[in-house]
Amino acid sequence: MLRELAAENIRNLHAFSVAPDERMNLIVGENASGKTSFLEAVYILSRARSFRTSRLNEVINTAANSAWVSGKLYEQESGKSTRLGLARTHGHTRFHINGQAIRNAATAAQHLPVKVIHPESHRLLTGGPGFRRAFIDWGCFYQDENFYPTWVRFQKLLNQRNAALKQRADSRVMNGIEREFCESAERLSRIRSKYIEVLRHGFASLSTLWPVDAEWELDYRRGWSSERDLRELLLAEREYARRQGYTLVGPQRADLVIKTNGERIVSRFSRGQIKRATVAFELAQIEIFEQGTGRRPVLLVDDMPSELDANARELLMHIFSSASRQCFITASTSNELRMSDDAEHCVFHVEHGRIRKML
């Protein structure tokens, strides 16, 4: 969890340093005051990017050419404290852990696991396959130590094959790349398939968040036919792939088809129900993470009240506050985020980019 958080030049936020509560942190303020930017600072510290944009430069205040975020982490399970920092200057990103430079964001993500639920999170259920692959891969990253090197290796081979297709490389070169591509693809697919089985069990334990008559089906599709050998498919699609300029089969095309009572969720649920179902998936993944690692991630929830009725908000706030994990939740007013009288929490008010601790 975060014991301290400080940042400078993150969007419209003034430089700040705060000491969050170890459990519940409510961030309130008018629209465009900087509430979401507060959550972005936490996310950037973990992932070296924003959940709102893939371009980190867009997060830097327009009046500045650099930005930084730092935090003091405390791991309850081990009693260990860690200083984590990120700075972005002139297009270059630098990471530090306890004052020592580190090479990539994966190391930071291991130290500070973060999950975020925001207004666009419904795309997990309503958007394209890329959103669901990202969801699966977050879980695999923490569940299986072999996932990240396997994923990095596969991405390298995918890029090599795509480049060879565009260059119209000869069969000898293509065969060599495709042999390694298939080996890496199979390893990656096995890791993902194993995780989906764990996810099915975890999701079933959160039935309070969706209608009682909903029966869920999670169908993992690995990106190529289960009845065909991947090398045969790559050879068969090679000429067409040359014309397209990219590889048409493989784990980069994987998807998780989510249905309820035999129908895709978009055709059955309202937007409010979709949001509740999305939260259920995210919480299932968090519980799997906690059971598998013995650690607790930081949960960020942006604009929690939107598209939820009062009963749904109360249910979610009860779930969030009763779990022993650190949460940061935004809303326009604290009245929208009712806490039980005995629940410890902090309230931060954000106004015109200034953050003030109220409680």
Rank of each mutant, 00 (worst) to 15 (best):
residue 157 L to D: 07
residue 349 H to Y: 14
residue 173 V to K: 04
residue 24 M to T: 05
residue 49 R to L: 11
residue 191 I to M: 12
residue 117 I to F: 15
residue 293 T to V: 07
residue 36 T to Q: 10
residue 202 G to H: 14
residue 356 R to T: 14
residue 161 R to V: 04
residue 155 Q to D: 13
residue 167 Q to A: 15
residue 7 A to M: 02
residue 312 A to W: 09
residue 117 I to Y: 05
residue 340 S to V: 10
residue 144 D to M: 07
residue 61 N to S: 14
residue 249 V to Q: 09
residue 270 S to P: 02
residue 119 P to F: 09
residue 240 Y to G: 11
residue 352 H to P: 01
residue 19 A to Y: 08
residue 334 S to Y: 09
residue 230 L to M: 11
residue 14 H to E: 12
residue 65 N to V: 01
residue 224 W to N: 12
residue 305 P to T: 11
residue 26 L to T: 04
residue 56 L to W: 03
residue 330 T to H: 00
residue 256 L to Q: 04
residue 44 I to G: 00
residue 13 L to Q: 01
residue 358 M to W: 06
residue 326 Q to K: 04
residue 254 A to K: 03
residue 275 K to L: 06
residue 32 A to E: 11
residue 350 V to A: 06
residue 43 Y to I: 03
residue 279 V to K: 07
residue 13 L to K: 07
residue 109 A to D: 07
residue 164 A to T: 02
residue 177 I to G: 05
residue 114 V to I: 11
residue 206 L to C: 09
residue 203 F to R: 05
residue 147 F to M: 01
residue 66 S to K: 06
residue 284 A to K: 00
residue 207 S to N: 14
residue 324 S to C: 04
residue 296 R to A: 04
residue 188 L to F: 06
residue 6 A to G: 10
residue 13 L to P: 04
residue 334 S to Q: 15
residue 67 A to H: 00
residue 303 D to L: 04
residue 356 R to V: 12
residue 78 S to D: 09
residue 325 R to W: 13
residue 307 E to K: 01
residue 290 E to H: 08
residue 75 E to T: 06
residue 163 A to L: 13
residue 310 A to E: 15
residue 130 G to C: 05
residue 13 L to W: 10
residue 177 I to Y: 05
residue 140 C to L: 10
residue 221 R to L: 14
residue 340 S to C: 05
residue 303 D to T: 07
residue 162 N to Y: 00
residue 59 V to G: 00
residue 4 E to G: 00
residue 273 Q to V: 06
residue 275 K to M: 06
residue 318 H to K: 15
